[in-house]
Design a protein around this nucleic acid. Sequence first.
DNA 1: TCGATTATATTCAAATTTGAATAGGGAGGG
DNA 2: CCCTCCCTATTCAAATTTGAATATAATCGA
Lengths: 188, 188
Amino acid sequence: MSMKLVILGLLLERERHPYEIMLVMKERSYNQMMKLQMGSLYYAVDKLAEEGHICATETIRSSDRPDKTIYRITDQGRALFEQLVLQQIKKYEQVYHPLYMALALSRHIDQSKVEKVLEERIRETEHQVNFYYQVYEEHVMSVPRSALHLMYGRYEHSLTELNWLKRLHADVAARKLNDIGSPLFADS
Amino acid sequence: MSMKLVILGLLLERERHPYEIMLVMKERSYNQMMKLQMGSLYYAVDKLAEEGHICATETIRSSDRPDKTIYRITDQGRALFEQLVLQQIKKYEQVYHPLYMALALSRHIDQSKVEKVLEERIRETEHQVNFYYQVYEEHVMSVPRSALHLMYGRYEHSLTELNWLKRLHADVAARKLNDIGSPLFADS
DNA sequence: TCGATTATATTCAAATTTGAATAGGGAGGG
DNA sequence: CCCTCCCTATTCAAATTTGAATATAATCGA
């Protein structure tokens, strides 16, 4: 659904062909907020066209380049766009964190190995935290607050994860993962 | 990949048939950490069997029930399991938050509508936060620390999100999303 | 005892995602 | 000048996910 959302959002600004949509997405770093695969992009464009939410306006043929098909958003598409934006904001989506599943099952394997990869993961996450904070800092004075919120949100999320990973690592290192009846925090 | 991980993890304990795997997953609330669809489960089982990571040991035929095929993990499967667990912990996976994309594009639509759905979302998230905290509290004295970490992590993550949503909502309400050059926090 | 719902087990078509292939032109380096 | 790599644009097969259909039995209240 995100794919359709972006396509409609960008066609709202002006007519574009699929490849151009991808370029703009990269320019604006949308590819950091969603998976950007060419196959999915073209698939979503075709779908939207079939459904009548966008329509092809012209095909530019050059002898030296593949043909490009330019698309324009329709009134139906505008309606869908609004609906999709509101729907995505409204609906609470489960955060399926692949780490959670792996950790739940990690007791079956050698704890010292788990400890080691957790350390790698922590280092990686530290870099991410720093990177996201820097991106935020660098843009504080130059972008609209909506973009700042996104950047700061990303930073906060990864910081939350980092702290969680560190507590987890401490427990793995102390081989306490299987202890029962011991609260994580003294004051709970 | 999570699907294969769980299947191997559960077959590590003992032989099971696919439907039983699903039952155990629900029992242990694994379905809250990953998407559980019967289609995917059977597909993953078939794949693992093809690859030789698990093998069918017997087929129980009853006249009154569909046949069930019991699977057992192989040595290859054990190796794969360890590899997958470590890989999932190690590899940093982008958190593609569908909300982010919607918010980045929300400036194209009526801000009062955005404000309203954000309020719904906040209420929903508040319930989640409370729910996750309760789950944690209820289990503090009775489950291994590994499980507690998962529960508390979920709680923290949703709390982080809630606070972020509230700040965002305040800005939407004040129509400040498009302001440029104003830091989100006084002290940054 | 009838009808409705829930549990047992699996399968399948259709939708979607993934990853790579295609094919020609320009740019830069040795 | 040639070779390699990257850019432009799109397409496609294969892998995977989704959502529902299937078929029978047990359970439970009216």
